[in-house]
Design a protein around this nucleic acid. Sequence first.
RNA 1: GCCGUGUUCGUCUAGCCGGCCCAGGACGCCAGGUUUUCAUCCUGGAAAUCGGGGGUUCGAAUCCCCCACACGGUACCA
Length: 507
Amino acid sequence: MKPRVRFAPSPTGPLHIGGVRTALYNYLFAKQNGGTMLLRIEDTDQTRFVEGAEEYIIEAFQWLGVKFDEGVGIGGNYGPYKQSERKPMYKQYADQLIENGWAYYAFDTPEMLEQKRKEYEAQKKTFQYDLHTRETMVNSLTLSKEEVAEKLANNEPFVIRFKHTPDTEILVNDIIRGEVRINSNTLDDKVLYKSDGMPTYHLANIVDDHLMEITHVIRGEEWLPSAPLHVMLYKAFGWEAPRFAHLPLLLKPDGNGKLSKRDGDRLGFPVFPLQWKDPKSGEISSGYRESGYLPEAVINMLALLGWNPGNDQEVMSMDELIQLFSLEKISKSGAKFDLEKAKWFNHHYLQAIPDENLAEDFKTTLTDKGIDVPMDKIVKVVGLIKERIYFTKDLWEQSHYFFERPTSYDEQVIKKRWKEGTEGHLKQIANILTSVVPFEKSAAHDKVMDYIKGNELNMGQIMNSFRLTLVGAAKGPDLFEIIDILGVDEVICRMNAGIEAIGKMAK
RNA sequence: GCCGUGUUCGUCUAGCCGGCCCAGGACGCCAGGUUUUCAUCCUGGAAAUCGGGGGUUCGAAUCCCCCACACGGUACCA
């Protein structure tokens, strides 16, 4: 049987990178097995709905190359895929549970529950609505049939709670964690159906997974504690439960605990795939895309946070990941996010992008700075600089001297390299360069080398001084490559300007 | 508090149906090499008494027990 999996986020804000990984694992698993991956929006909590979150989620996966086969924004035979649009169908399932004795009405108001919790807290205990306390509460278990009917007829607010059977061992068979057992006595009677007529996550999730014929539930570890309830719900409905796989959490880079939006702000790295502007506060959270990350790098980095193919291979394309992925090899413990490794992946994948494409991108940056240069020059520069950048946004910093003259000269380098006779030698070198007609970089290189050797000069000293006049610092690729791109006229011009400016500084 | 899950280099991890592991790889770090410089790149190195303590065994990171710590859950949130 082909697996059917789902990613089911709540539209309560931008999609967290941990959620992206969950979706990725679902996707890899589905694709590997020729299965179906669907996107379901779980918007049962109307109070937490955030404008634009749904669109954000869809756009994020588009950018990352995680493709859904079915669901919100795509369609399919199991729709609607948004729980708010499925609202009318949940009540009958809750009713069914009541009829079969698996659930009951509860009329306790939020205020009454709050009061109970306080009472318990005062005795240093924690109140739990469960099989020990439900007999003391206002519900269809303690009220007479008539009373319940009357309350319902009067439209008194109610919730429907699951009724755990006493002293039952519930077994959750998890692909990653093995068998997890829990006694029903410790579980609370979770609300399945809220007083606003919406199901809670637990009910909606199970009903939808069943109706949508989900075969594997791959989700974050934070759901493990409610897995026993879910297992019981399947049992109560008489449905076959899907297989579960609870993923380890993504942890913050320093200290312990779940990776949160705040950690990103604090440590200066994105926690979200795309930039997000909060519609209410206007607060902006950075995204991987806007920070210059390539989707391939984000995918590769994320895939390895909690999973590995079992050998030493670390660089993998989406297709390779699909080939190699397995739920069984997912680790059990949480993984700390590592910014350095993310950068390294980005550098790696950047090298595979054709110069022309990077140049296209870079051209807009240059245009923004009021620099207008021919495309072929940009392509050449990019080709020369590419290997030393980690993000496309580094291009400018690493290559600005190709497009603008130095405005300052590194004083450390002057101190170390600029000597008594430097000026004269540079003038000689300028003459040599002009004598190479037409200009040819290897010929120019040979001639300059001859000059340096013929006069028994210190190569590092002369060449770095030379570089200083062109670049303003002791950095950058091969000097003759730079000269080739700048053109001899520009080079001579910069040399003269440099000699004059540095000559003054050296005194 | 209660329930659950987890614990191998700084980080991600391999190994976990016992011996090939005085623990392997990657990122980062350090050193050397390449280069006229910086970066890249290449080579090498340091880095985990396998959370702690008990067992079992000829032999344990690997099996068993106890403890500690961390994390997650404990909402009419997902």
